[in-house]
């Protein structure tokens, strides 16, 4: 910017917004027409001024913060996907469950479950020697359908329950973990909205896995 531009530069902002009074417009335009730098500057300012028109000013005072815990949920989903991916890889290697996976997928599509992903939650181990396992809770008219990926659990009998805000446990059923059990489907009478967590206990009542749903 040359010294000659200085008196005109700050007029370029109001000019780009169409706010400069007519008498001033003529002199600023005369300078801009003869100055490549100021012409380029005005073009850039007019682009910015055009962008302003796209915004509803009422919304500017309304910053949008994502819900608390969204980042944690995303990381949890990624962890869940990674676990599933690892297991899929393991299964591909052994080739044992190919047919079961296909049958499961077909059943899911037939039942329309594939269209309702439900609420996904990762059940974290509450003692050593266990891996986290993914679960999916699907809202049903009669309560909540609970789907667990049980393949990674040590053999034994397990009891699944949903936790209410007052700490009461509503049963969702039990299952025997066997090698490559795959997905286990259970049911609880408690609606998803009424549950704050989901737990898995051993037969003696010791909680071995727990997934937090909400505070």
């Amino acid at each position: 910017m040359s010294e000659g531009c200085r008196p005109f530069r700050e007029q370029l902002g109001p000019l780009a917004l169409g706010h400069l009074p007519d008498p001033e417009v003529a002199s600023v335009r005369a300078h801009v027409d003869g100055c490549a730098d100021c012409r380029e500057e005005l073009r850039a300012l007019e682009e910015a001024a055009g962008a302003l028109a796209l915004v509803d000013p009422e919304l500017l005072d309304e910053p949008l913060a994502p819900p608390r815990g969204l980042g944690d949920r995303i990381v949890s989903l990624v962890r869940e996907e990674r676990l599933l991916e690892q297991r899929r890889r393991r299964r591909r290697l052994t080739g044992l469950l190919a047919a079961a996976v296909l049958a499961g997928a077909l059943a899911a599509v037939t039942l329309g479950i594939a269209h309702d992903p439900g609420v996904r939650v990762l059940l974290e181990p509450q003692r050593g020697g266990l891996e986290a396992i993914p679960a999916r809770l699907v809202e049903r008219p009669w309560g909540t359908e609970v789907r667990l990926e049980a393949s990674g659990l040590p053999a034994g009998r397990y009891v699944v329950w949903l936790r209410e805000p007052d700490d009461d446990r509503v049963p969702a059923g039990s299952f025997d973990a066997v090698a490559d059990a795959g997905e286990v489907v259970l049911a609880s009478a408690l609606a998803i909205d009424g549950a704050v967590g989901i737990g898995v206990s051993e037969a003696d009542g010791t909680t071995v896995l727990y997934g937090h749903l909400r505070d």
Partner: peptide, 10 residues
């Protein structure tokens, strides 16, 4: 400030 505001926006 209008001038510098538009520049900063750009």
């Amino acid at each position: 400030r209008v001038y510098y505001g538009l520049r900063a926006l750009r």
